[in-house]
Write a protein that binds this DNA or RNA. Structure first.
Lengths: 315, 315
DNA sequence: CTGTTAGCGCGTTCAA
DNA sequence: TTGAACGCGCTAACAG
């Protein structure tokens, strides 16, 4: 059954009939035990709830459809501590492959991943030096594009709003710093407002509120993500601050809501579903020894200019 | 190791030292094979992406924390067809327990679940006749509460907006019908607008738009869920229809965004995280033969009145 | 191409 | 209380 091409047609059809008649379904535990290889694909991500990872997960599940492999989600809860231990335990299951979020693994975690003896794909970021394979986008560069857009639209006192500053958010902040510094518009102590708490609409409103208190003349914000951006937009509406005329807002990720809020929200689109899908394909290709496949993929990003930064027209 | 109380203290400590020294970690495949029981908890849901199920999943994962069990997600994609087949294949893994969404399983699927030989919990709804155990809320009754609230606020031409009418949405619609009919306010042909497409903010705007075209004098809408409600709110803003004065809006689920939009959104809170958490506890309790635990739990709901239906004040 | 056989690492049973 | 032996259902390797 594992290699039908090595069997005579007659035997094959007999086998198929028997499978049918008995309702035979393989026992995955026995397969794993005998072959020292499971049909499990480990997916190590900080959160299943966050919309961003939910999209990735959807790509992974669709990519695995009818492949015979099953995803198993390992939730790191944004804590790098313990990641190595989680991976070590997971390694005993001898997974067929591993997808892991980001590039900030500890040295020991990288070690464990390398010794896992299966394909490993890092996702959501780019790196010249992946553990094995990688697909994602350059967060810092994407951050730069967002801020550059604000400057082009004529904004000058540009703030940064960020909740739960995970490594990717840190890199977007670095991109923000690159551009405002180059333009001589930097004022970190007053223009940057972050919180260690998780992302939410409510948190976006809070951050906007805090930033306005600290720096009343801010005229635009680059937000960590769309949740924060929408919360900030609502806060402006509550205070009668007109967007985009008096305040420009750029989000990140381009969730569905960005295209339909009032005003619509400028954002940076990231290709999360595609990333999940292709990460799976990279692994399956390797497992089946198919002709070479790219091992280091830049999934790119796309600035989506919308009303929340249309200052020219709004003035 | 499985029953330390039957072993002399001396041997126990020797075993523990050996475990330490060898870095021993049990092999789940071998455990499953030998015992004909895996430590896998099946979670059968229509979607991982939908915020509603993401919250449930978070409860499940938190409930499983340090229990030694692992969740395995089976995605039905809202298709009842094939559910039975999925379950049958899943049954070969001999899961420790199963959590399954809703109460609309086919007779054969119910059959398969009953023969699974492990605890089964249906979630998200109530029923006097569960397959085994159940926890959730009465969707129809919750729908009634939402519409009753609109009537109390003085709205009279009350519409219903729904995307992807899954069985739960159908029951909320039934609740809507109960109340508008009892009040003599029903006009199904003109006041109900649904779409088979998935829920999204954009879809909410579309549905609102279609409803206004079909029934221009509608003065309030009960929306299938908060995504649709927020999309509808944005559509009203785009058209200059004032909410709540000219149009009342009630959502469903009470997502984070409902409390912070402008105006804030009246919604019906459902306890999804708690439901996931407790569903797991019901299963673990049974597996450990602990003293009896409730088998049929009504998780309830809570109307959250907010600005989007404050007609009294707005007038 | 086909049939046979030895473990994979553990739970379970039985004897000591 | 401990130790030894068997077999879960399959893969892989080998001999026919």
């Amino acid at each position: 059954m594992r290699s039908p091409e090595l069997v005579s047609p007659a035997t094959l059809s007999k086998v198929q009939k028997a499978v049918e008649a008995l309702g035979y379904v393989p026992n995955p535990a026995a397969q794993a035990l005998a072959s020292a290889r499971s049909r499990i694909l480990g997916v190590v991500i900080p959160s299943l709830t966050n919309q961003i990872f939910a999209d990735l997960v959807r790509g992974v599940m669709d990519g695995l459809e009818n492949s015979g492999y099953t995803p198993q989600f390992v939730n790191t809860r944004y804590q790098l501590t313990g990641e190595e231990e989680l991976l070590r335990i997971f390694a005993t299951q001898r997974p067929a492959g591993v997808i892991v979020s980001g590039i900030d693994q500890s040295d020991r975690a990288r070690q464990v991943l390398r010794q896992m003896g299966c394909p490993v794909v890092q996702v959501m970021e780019t790196s010249p030096d992946p553990i094995d394979m990688i697909i994602g986008c350059d967060q810092r560069d994407a951050g730069r594009a967002a801020v550059r857009h604000l400057i082009e639209q004529g904004y000058r006192r540009i703030g940064f709003l960020g909740a739960l500053m995970d490594p990717r958010a840190q890199r977007r902040l670095a991109g923000y710093r690159d551009v405002v510094s180059a333009a001589g518009l930097n004022d970190d102590a007053r223009l940057i407002m972050t919180s260690p708490q998780p992302t939410s609409y409510t948190m976006g409103g809070q951050l906007m509120s805090d930033l306005l208190a600290q720096c009343p003349d801010v005229d635009a914000v680059f937000c960590n993500n769309d949740d924060v951006a929408l919360g900030a937009l609502f806060e402006c509406q509550r205070r009668g601050i007109s967007v985009p005329a008096r305040m420009g807002i750029v989000g990140f990720n381009d969730l569905d809501v960005a295209a339909c809020s009032v005003p619509t929200l400028t954002s940076v689109r990231t290709h999360r579903y595609q990333t999940g899908l292709q990460a799976v394909q990279m692994i399956l290709t390797r497992l089946e020894n198919l002709p070479d496949h790219p091992r280091n993929v830049d999934a790119g990003y796309q600035l989506m200019p919308r009303q929340s930064t249309e200052r020219m027209i709004a003035l």
